[in-house]
């Protein structure tokens, strides 16, 4: 299967953050794992998205030092982000349903 670039990066990020706070590299790893390597991106381009979300207030960031001494910037879902995730998810489901509905009618005709 041809690898796809992520288009709904924000939605995917919000979804990843719903369960726990993670840092940028972890997001890339999780996205690849959960999508069985369908989602791959130029990793650096994740950061403009993350920073934009931070400015928009859907995520908040904090730095935390790991026991190894490395400091990482963690992102956490804000209340606003939770609301945004619910909306985006619903919108995506409607879109997917619509696409599927069209594909089904094509098969029937």
């Amino acid at each position: 299967m041809k690898k796809q670039s992520i288009e709904h990066t924000q939605l995917l990020v919000l979804s990843l953050l719903a369960s726990r706070d993670i840092y940028g590299y972890e997001m890339i790893v999780e996205l690849a794992r959960r999508s069985q390597n369908v989602f791959e991106m130029k990793e650096g381009t994740l950061y403009p998205v993350l920073h934009a979300m931070e400015k928009a207030g859907t995520v908040a960031a904090y730095e935390q030092t790991a026991p190894t001494g490395r400091t990482r910037k963690y992102y956490r879902l804000t209340q606003k982000g939770r609301g945004c995730l619910a909306d985006e998810k619903a919108a995506w489901a409607r879109y997917a349903d619509a696409v599927n509905a069209v594909l089904r009618t094509e098969a029937l005709s």
């Binding site: 130029k42 990793e43 381009t45 950061y47 403009p48």
Partner: peptide
């Protein structure tokens, strides 16, 4: 190399 184009990322961040 996997980070992609640094200028693109830099500009994307600078805009914000």
């Amino acid at each position: 190399e996997r980070m992609g184009d640094p200028a693109e990322t830099g500009r994307g961040i600078a805009r914000l």
